[in-house]
Design a protein around this nucleic acid. Sequence first.
DNA 1: ATTGTGGCCTGCCCGC
DNA 2: TGCGGGCAGGCCACAA
Length: 262
Amino acid sequence: MPELLEVEIYRRFAHQTVGRTITSVHAPDDWFLKNTTAGELEGLLPKLKVLGTSRIGKLLLLELGTKKSIDLHLGLRFGMTGRLIVDDGAAIDQLEYSSDRNDPAWDRFGLTFDDGLMLLRDPRRLGGIELDPDTSKLGPDAWGISAADLGAALGKGRGPLKARLLDQKRIAGLGNLLVDEILWRSGFSPHRVSGELNANDNKKLAKMINVVLDELDKKGGSHQGDLQDSRSREGECPRDGAPLAREKVGGRTTYWCPNHQK
DNA sequence: ATTGTGGCCTGCCCGC
DNA sequence: TGCGGGCAGGCCACAA
């Protein structure tokens, strides 16, 4: 997916629709609707106005007010390949590892407004739409996280550090590329036992999470990291030239430098 | 409760 | 040119 940074770009883009009134719902794919149906959405949404947007981790929320005592927050998840299109422009034209074709068959969900439209285009259908998603299941957003909150998120777990950082219940928003970049820059091995970080480690790691997010946000996204170009077999560490290790950690393909990440 | 595994679904790229 | 295998930035259900 789009990781936190891409979803934040989507959110800013979606924010253009604040104040517009929904006129119709396009929900052709039942699979994509996680806790609702096309019929329910068609009954609830038209005539409602977009009141605001927010984001927790990789979850984008449209605030639509309250109707029939349902608090209408529409949750949009993008999976690994979802893109958001508002009016005539895609929020992000080129997603790494996703096709940049514009095939209308990939339109999984859409809203038409009195003025313009919003489309979620997802080739792989790993994203989804959820009505009033339970945000209490998500940890604190990674962007702006404090050392104390990071320490609490890491807890006393015995699993690898990388797996915990990817666990959205613990800390929300980091994906595979961001975690590899953060660990590489801060010099922690992805295999470090997450519960064994001390207060200094937490401080260092929390700071690096924020530095990387700030910096890559300015550069344009999660794939603009310094490690990115070396994420391939035969890749070498951009810092010290050592061969990068490539292995599965936390179920995800991981590139890291055994020479300086300890 | 925590941790690891497999699967979801589809497109693309590589090598034969 | 066609085909099979492997790959993919996410997430969830399930089992140990």
